[in-house]
Design a protein around this nucleic acid. Structure first.
Lengths: 141, 141
DNA sequence: ATAGGACTTCCTATCATGGGAAGGTCAAGG
DNA sequence: CCTTGACCTTCCCATGATAGGAAGTCCTAT
């Protein structure tokens, strides 16, 4: 299986497969005589695992850990659960943050006529500077 | 007011002030004889506006638009409201996405004993590949 | 044999932010 | 007056995950 087939079989782009290999997330694929990467079903499974974990919002570092736990058939489920729970906590915190933003904004928007007149509480609030704001935009994991 | 004072007065780091100037988000600050940037209270207000908008999760491009609307005292509030509402919609969509991730994960976690035993539905699910998944991790705006 | 597609590596960019080096400037104190 | 230390300037580099593209090699089907 070459990289194109691996990509469509796993749902991970060829670009990303090379990248994952480069950063050591997956082991370097075997090569054919002509230097093409060659993937086994096992490799595809790894890629699918990664794909699914990404879709659940796990960061690459967490995925690294999950992958090695997955490969270790005698790991205690405690460790896996800890990672997952940590991630859920993280997600919930970010959700709350964004919820606060959305709520604050729609409150402001409700107070805005949205017509031809220029006065608008949204701009007024933005101009007022960091009000009692706690929610600050953070980069996504 | 030099850049350090502007930074602490606005809450925007000196690095970021230079960056905002570079990308044209704010106009280039005046310079003193010795080439130091010199900021007026008006500039500080702009920076505070930006800071507050960032804290509400607006993307830089949206902020560009909001800023020009803010400067135009005869703009119709309609335009401002449209940007804000668009952003709220966007936020709510991302919230729903993350909520789905968090819910799916905590469901899996609930099924995991979290003890010394190795069996764990979290890994099983991840290995199953993209289940009926719709929520996919997207880069943060 | 030749055309087309798919592969290889390497470089570039994104977005917002921070770190740091090398060198110029200002204010306070000896 | 000169030193010191804190500040300023520009320029380069890095991040994380992803994509785009160029130049060159290889495979497959006609």
């Amino acid at each position: 299986m070459n990289i194109g087939q691996a990509a469509s079989a796993s749902g991970v782009s060829a670009k990303m497969i090379r990248y994952y290999e480069q950063i050591g997330l997956i082991r370097a694929a075997d090569r054919t005589d002509s230097n093409y990467r060659s993937f086994s079903t096992r490799d595809i499974n790894d890629l699918r695992f990664i794909k699914r974990a990404r879709s659940l919002g796990f960061a690459m570092e967490e995925i690294t850990n999950l992958l090695s736990l997955w490969r270790d058939h005698s790991r205690p489920s405690r460790e896996v659960k800890a990672i997952a729970d940590g991630h859920v906590t993280d997600l919930r915190a970010r959700i709350a943050e964004m919820q606060a933003m959305a709520d604050a904004l729609s409150l402001l928007s409700d107070g805005c006529a949205g017509d031809d007149r220029p006065d608008c509480p949204i701009l007024t609030d933005l101009a007022a500077g960091p009000s009692r704001g706690q929610a600050t935009a953070r980069p996504r994991p």
